[in-house]
Structure formats: C-alpha cells, structure tokens
Simulated scan of single mutants.
Amino acid sequence: MLRLDAEHVMRPVEAGDGPALARAYLTNRAHLAPWEPTRDETFFTDAWQEEDARRCVTDAAAGRSIRFLIVSTDGEIRGRMNLNNIVRGAFWSADLGYWIDASRLRRGLATRAVRRVTEYARDELKLHRLQAATLVHNAGSQRVLAENGFVRIGSAPKYLRIAGEWQDHLLFQRLLEEPFSSRPARP
C-alpha cells in the first residue's frame, strides 16, 4: 500500500474489488465518457468489474501489467493507475494510464499518484521507461505528466477509439534512470 496523502492510499487491484469498482465507474460515468472507450451497460455491473479485477490479479502475477486503485479513507475508490503492456527483453517499458474521480480533481491527487506509480515502476519493477498517451485536448493530463518529468515524444493520428471515434493522441515518455524532478513537456 502506498500513501498518497492524509486521505488517499494506492494499492493493487484485488479479487473482491468488483462492487466498489462498479460503484466508482457508475459515479464517474459522465466524467470519464469523453476520455475512454464507449462502454456498454455490462461494464458497469458488479459481475463484470469483479471478473476484470480477477484478470488484473492474474495479469499482475504473470508480470504483464499491474493496476492500482486510489482509495480514500471512507473506503471508496477515487481513481486508478495502470501500468499496462509491461515488456522486458530489450525494452523494459510499460504504458501508463489513469483516471481520477470527478470529486477529487484539481487537488494534486493525479500528480502524486503518477509520481508514486512511476517510482514503483522504477524501484520495484526495475523498468527503464514509461509511456503515456493523452488526447490532444487533454491539457490537465498533459500537465500531470509534465509535472512528473514526462516529455512529449510525438503524436499518433487516430491512435485509440475513444468516445466512439478514432482520436489523435500526444505521446509522452519518462526515462526512469533520470532524477525525479519536474520538467515542462515539449509543446
């Protein structure tokens, strides 16, 4: 368990998290809709979320990914941090993805959580780099990445199908051997 502040901790997804995840996704449905793939109704059910939580546990045990929950002192899920597509060999890299509960925006929670998951990737997973992609117009997420030393490395036209459309993304990376200090992202 990683402490983020007096109100929040970050911990890996566990079996049994399905109902709390379903509640968090339902609460944030409208907030997340512009930033995520189109979700059908089953995604928001306890059963679907529990099955996904179990997949998360299996993927973590196999070293393919690790997904974290941001949990507040009231026990509610307030966000997720995902290290997906962990690759070893000559690459030693992973993709970073995340979201924060609408009620917790603009408090620095995403910035702290990205920093902790980046430290985890460096110290525990011994990765060389993290990559993140944001929608071109997601200035908030781009600020969070810049504050954590990610630099823009390019753009990807029609990169992911988000909100029902293939959308352009900006690509960022963080080399983990570099010291942790804030750097502005390249325009």
Rank of each mutant, 00 (worst) to 15 (best):
R64M: 06
K126I: 03
L170P: 06
R107M: 13
R23E: 10
E177R: 12
L109N: 03
V57E: 00
A24D: 03
G63A: 00
E51M: 04
E119Q: 14
A62Q: 15
S65I: 00
V117R: 08
L145S: 00
R116H: 10
D95K: 08
T38K: 02
A110M: 08
F172I: 07
T134W: 07
I66L: 15
Q131C: 02
A61D: 08
R143W: 08
Y25R: 06
R143F: 10
R78C: 11
G75Y: 11
Q173E: 15
F150L: 02
R23L: 09
F44R: 00
F91W: 10
R115C: 06
R64P: 05
E147W: 12
S181C: 13
S141K: 04
F150C: 00
D46Q: 07
E165P: 00
H8K: 05
E50V: 07
A133V: 05
C56E: 10
A163C: 07
F180K: 01
V136R: 11
F43M: 03
N85Y: 12
Q167K: 08
D123V: 08
A110K: 01
R107D: 11
A102Q: 08
G149S: 14
E177Y: 13
F43G: 03
G164S: 01
P19H: 07
L32S: 09
H137F: 14
E147I: 07
L130T: 01
R143S: 12
A6F: 05
D5W: 08
S103C: 12
T134D: 09
R129T: 14
T45C: 07
G18S: 10
A30G: 01
E51K: 12
K158N: 06
Q167M: 04
Y159R: 05
G164F: 01
C56L: 09
R174N: 08
R104S: 15
P12R: 13
N82M: 06
R106E: 15
R80C: 12
R183V: 15
R112P: 01
I70A: 13
P184W: 07
D74C: 03
G164T: 00
I66A: 06
R3Y: 10
N148L: 07
R174T: 10
W92D: 14
G79A: 02
T42H: 12
L171F: 08
I153M: 13
A146W: 12
A113S: 10
L176V: 03
G18D: 09
A60H: 13
H128Q: 10
S93F: 01
Y120E: 04
F172N: 04
L135M: 15
N85E: 13
D17W: 01
A53Y: 01
G154Q: 04
A6M: 04
K158Y: 05
L145D: 00
N148W: 07
E14M: 12
G140S: 05
M81A: 02
D40L: 05
R67F: 10
H169Y: 06
L176C: 03
L130Y: 01
I77R: 04
L4P: 01
W35I: 11
W35C: 10
T111K: 10
R152E: 07
A62E: 14
R80L: 09
L135V: 14
I66Q: 14
F68Y: 08
A133S: 15
E7I: 02
A61L: 06
T73E: 13
N28I: 03
I70D: 07
A146D: 11
R174E: 11
Q49K: 02
